[in-house]
Amino acid sequence: MTMTRHLLFTAALLATLTASAQERYATRTGHISFHSDTPMEKIEAHNHKATSVFDATTGAIEMAVLMKGFEFEKALMQEHFNENYVESDKFPKATFKGKITGITAEDLKKPGSHAVTVEGDLTMHGVTKPVKASGTMGMEPTGAIRATGSFTVKPEDYNIAIPGMVRDNIAKEIVIKVQVDHTKM
């Protein structure tokens, strides 16, 4: 009985210890861009205010970005993007929750770049879909923990309707590029 009690105590203590020993990195100024490339029109938009938190002990990563923070080449495009396509007033944020594999907490202690895969759920326009991407992660000479990656999404998968009139102007698959420099929390 006493033995079990001790064991349990130790286990509980260990569990709390691991919790506090987690290596977390975060930023509020991540760069996310998307690109639609057709013979008719090239569209790209950039957002430099993505938030991201990465937990190096578990590999868990979470990102969020305000849709209205995407800046387009053309003001009207930006207005239409928010008003007609992603409906930013109704769905203000896009979020990603996933896990990065191919890197350990130790890898992030010294400069270098490592190939990683990230897998998780992307929520946008009220729809959640699994996405998978390959990218890189590592410590920059500046000490920032940089994660980069790119993947493609189809607007139709997220219930984003493209009217027939502009179907040739908007790519079937939109490339999303991510580059976030985390700092230790």
């Binding site: 286990a11 509980a12 709390t16 987690q22 938030t51 938190v53």
Partner: peptide
């Protein structure tokens, strides 16, 4: 003790569920 253990293990789990909340 079980409850304590449960809570202790739950805490980090919960944190992982809402990493962004940490910010």
């Amino acid at each position: 003790l079980s409850v304590l253990f449960f809570i202790a293990t739950l805490a980090p789990l919960h944190a992982q569920d809402d990493l962004l909340g940490l910010l």
